[in-house]
């Protein structure tokens, strides 16, 4: 493993470096995935890495009451876990970040890295999609925003173009009467990726019927996947265990998982239903406490 390394001190500096390097350069933040990928030949060794993790603006986690949350791309999962008290409206995100890797990995691995790496099993992707995150991207032609759900194109493939940088994610503050939750299943509780992960967001009407529902599943398709038919089936309805089971069964119909060393496709499909039920029930419970 040998490459040049440039530490960008500002976003304009990082942009200049990336434009000069063209396809010879690669962005690194925590590097927990990239370095291992280079060592094991999963990624072609770049000529140079541009480290964006020392750019102050990208390291910030801003929580504004009423305004929502702005997560800089290089905020680490450890920082998310330690900000538990200011992230009380975003439990799905904290639940996802706190189950990623290990304490040591979380201190290095960044939220932006987890997203740009675009692993189908990415820990935080379902939570961030369910919370309706917007991705903020800066490139040679300026800044643009897209919905995070449209950012993922396939395993290791994203909407990022040459020399573009994901600078952060913005999430509107979850309204009163809403709740969110994240569940994952893995052969081990630490240091392993999820075989299925599901995040749910629900917003209730005053009569406790579902007004808005967002369910996002991971590790069961090439990209994080919304269970749209389950979402639709819940709107206007009242919570019941039977209804949650039905939603789980509908979520299952969207899943197109693979069989690998961790789990079979059949098992993953069954577990999608179970985790969807659990995530919905937890999100509902939190929404009721927040009426």
């Amino acid at each position: 493993m040998k490459f040049a390394y440039y530490k960008a001190k500002s976003l304009p500096e990082a942009m200049t470096m990336l434009e000069e390097l063209g396809d010879k350069g690669k962005i690194v933040a925590g590097g927990t995935d990239l370095l291992i990928g280079i060592q094991h030949g999963k990624y072609a060794a770049p000529e140079a890495l541009v480290d964006i993790s020392f750019i102050d603006d990208l390291n910030r986690l801003n929580v504004q009451n009423g305004d929502g949350l702005a997560i800089g791309a290089t905020v680490t999962h450890g920082a998310i876990c330690r900000a538990l008290n200011v992230l009380e409206k975003y439990p799905a995100l904290v639940e996802a970040s706190s189950q990623l890797g290990s304490p040591q990995v979380r201190n290095l691995a960044t939220v932006g890295g987890n997203i740009c790496n675009a692993a189908p099993s990415a820990e935080t992707a379902p939570a961030l999609v369910a919370l309706k995150s917007m991705a903020r991207i800066v490139g040679p032609s300026g800044e643009r925003q897209i919905e995070l759900k449209d950012f993922f194109l396939g395993p290791s493939r994203t909407d990022l173009k040459q020399s573009e940088i994901l600078v952060g994610l913005n999430i509107n503050e979850p309204p009163q009467g809403s709740g969110n939750a994240y569940f994952r299943l893995s052969p081990r509780n630490a240091l392993d990726i999820a075989i299925v992960n599901v995040a749910a967001y629900v917003k209730l009407n005053k009569d406790y019927t579902f007004e808005d529902v967002c369910i996002c599943m991971g590790a069961v398709a090439p990209t994080p996947l919304r269970a749209t038919s389950a979402e639709k089936a819940l709107v206007g309805e009242t919570f019941s265990e039977k209804l949650m089971r039905e939603a789980g069964q509908l979520a299952k119909t969207h899943a197109v998982p693979i069989t690998d060393v961790r789990a079979s496709a059949e098992y993953r499909r069954e577990m999608v239903a179970v985790l969807t039920e659990k995530a919905l029930a937890k999100a509902y419970e939190r929404a009721k406490l927040n009426m």
């Binding site: 530490k7 690194v28 927990t32 370095l35 291992i36 993790s53 040591q104 290095l108 240091l191």
Partner: peptide, 26 residues
């Protein structure tokens, strides 16, 4: 050497890290 085993754990500014994953300029 992959950030899995924790054998290389050191503290950087008091926080635990896998030193096998930390590039020296960091």
């Amino acid at each position: 050497g992959d950030g899995d085993c924790g054998g290389c754990t050191v503290l950087i500014d008091g926080m635990p890290y896998n030193s096998c994953l930390v590039l020296i300029p960091k």
